[in-house]
Design a protein around this nucleic acid. Structure first.
Lengths: 143, 143
DNA sequence: TTCCTTGCAAAACTTTTGCATTAAA
DNA sequence: TTTAATGCAAAAGTTTTGCAAGGAA
């Protein structure tokens, strides 16, 4: 076994562990998706994940990708974002953070929490409480 | 002509005027959609607008509703929002503002700009400038 | 007439679902 | 063996598009 394969095994093992910890049975497809998505903080669409896995030679169905992403999101392993109306983006960074959205390229860039500070926020309407705050800073090319 | 009809005429005339001012030819369907949407600050989906117009007896097609909403948004008469992945919401309030998003009911509520104050914001990446900032405060039922 | 708008249907796209098959414990 | 996951295809939901017909200038 070369070091590349060994490294992959390690990552796969870590992912299996994370899935198990969340009460998710670490099946082949789920681990593959986890390895792809959880290896680094990133934003991927279902289509990108499907293409990536198939390009790597895996046999995966669209249904499984969606089922898996929804399951991961439900268990808090990933976060589903709605920044543009076109499709969902799946964010492997589940720590609180915000986003730049580059309108030219469509790219999403993480903004760490300490980089945004609110000195005033409205009180939530009666009977409700704040579940979370999403901030999307839209970017265009500088004039 | 009763006062109700007179009032409607006035609103329709105002809408026609706004469309003309934006370089949009004020056709029957466009004015109808403008009257519905621009009469008050609100958030409507394409489907809601279609249903509303048809319930009022108008002959309108889905294609025209979408064409018109896209045209209005392009000209800055309305704003298209992506708060949940399910569909687009069209906001007749184009002044800068933010939103509460009630996760229980799905309702959107405007948050005036002065109610949110940033004491710190990240600098935009090199070569870009901030085109706008969207803030969505998600609400759940209070425990 | 000429250009633009509309309606309808179909297409395009993303996401979900039903069901037979396969894999996991 | 028993339960759950997968693949495939089809369905569902939203939005766009092609094109013929209708309306405005």
């Amino acid at each position: 076994m070369d070091s590349q394969a060994q490294l992959s095994d390690t990552i796969a093992s870590q992912c299996e562990r994370r899935l198990s910890d969340c009460g998710i049975r670490p099946t082949g497809q789920r681990v593959r998706i986890a390895v792809l998505l959880l290896s680094a903080p990133q934003h991927l669409s279902a289509e990108q994940i499907l293409d990536s896995l198939r390009a790597a030679g895996a046999r995966v169905s669209k249904a499984t990708v969606y089922n898996t992403l929804n399951l991961f999101a439900e268990r808090g392993l990933i976060r589903q974002l709605s920044v543009d109306g076109s499709r969902a983006w799946f964010d492997s960074n589940v720590d609180a953070h915000y986003h730049f959205h580059d309108l030219t390229s469509g790219a999403l860039i993480d903004v760490p929490v300490p980089d945004v500070e609110f000195s005033r926020l409205p009180p939530p309407p009666p009977g409700t409480e704040v579940a979370g705050i999403d901030v999307v800073i839209r970017l265009r090319k500088k004039a």
